[in-house]
């Protein structure tokens, strides 16, 4: 079932404090490279953005000490991690687990929005286009990372599976419901 506020895991505050010292430039470079790989494997995601494929999006995990600026740039995406809110056309904010769960299709965006677990500000149409495009792409972020890990793919999957069980965060795309 989709979550309520109570069931969305929060990133532990003590770990979030540790992340405050994380160097952001390498993280931005890694996430940009990762986003460009996703752009190649899921080109339809950027087509589905339509007229919003050059909009900018602030993705704000409310339990983390930084925010992400996502610029799709027509299929040549760039991700910048910053400590201060950047200028963006649209802002989507919520717990990290909610944002990751949305990407994996585990949660319904409208339900999270109605329950106030997700906040949308700025260009609502752009935010809606992004949400719909991501939902259709059927992304599995962990699987993408595992594929990039080459010979370490199998242990990587085991680590992800363990972390998912321990944290309750939806780190992989849930398996489809069985055919009726």
């Amino acid at each position: 079932m989709p979550p309520t506020s109570q069931s969305i895991p929060q990133f532990p505050a003590h770990l979030a404090r540790v992340l405050r010292v994380l160097p952001l430039a390498p993280l931005s470079l890694s996430l940009t490279a990762y986003a460009r790989r996703v752009a190649k494997t899921h080109a339809g995601l950027f087509r589905r953005l339509g007229e919003h494929d050059h909009a900018s999006f602030e993705l704000a995990p409310t339990d983390m000490p930084f925010v992400l600026l996502l610029e799709p740039r027509g299929g040549d995406p760039k991700v910048t991690v910053t400590r201060r809110a950047p200028r963006a056309d649209a802002r989507i904010a919520g717990p990290l687990a909610a944002l990751i769960g949305l990407v994996h299709g585990a949660y319904d965006g409208d339900a999270l929005f109605f329950s106030r677990d997700l906040v949308i500000e700025g260009d609502t149409a752009a935010a809606l286009a992004l949400r719909n495009a991501v939902d259709d792409a059927e992304l599995d972020l962990s699987e993408e990372i595992a594929t990039l890990s080459g010979p370490f793919a199998a242990p990587m999957r085991r680590i992800v599976s363990f972390a998912q069980r321990r944290t309750g965060v939806c780190l992989t795309r849930p398996e489809d419901l069985a055919a009726w």
């Binding site: 989709p2 319904d108 009726w180």
Partner: peptide, 16 residues
């Protein structure tokens, strides 16, 4: 039609 695939699956399963 404006809702996510997770919503669709959940509602369809219930109504079926």
């Amino acid at each position: 039609r404006q809702r996510s695939r997770s919503y669709v699956a959940e509602v369809v399963k219930n109504f079926r």
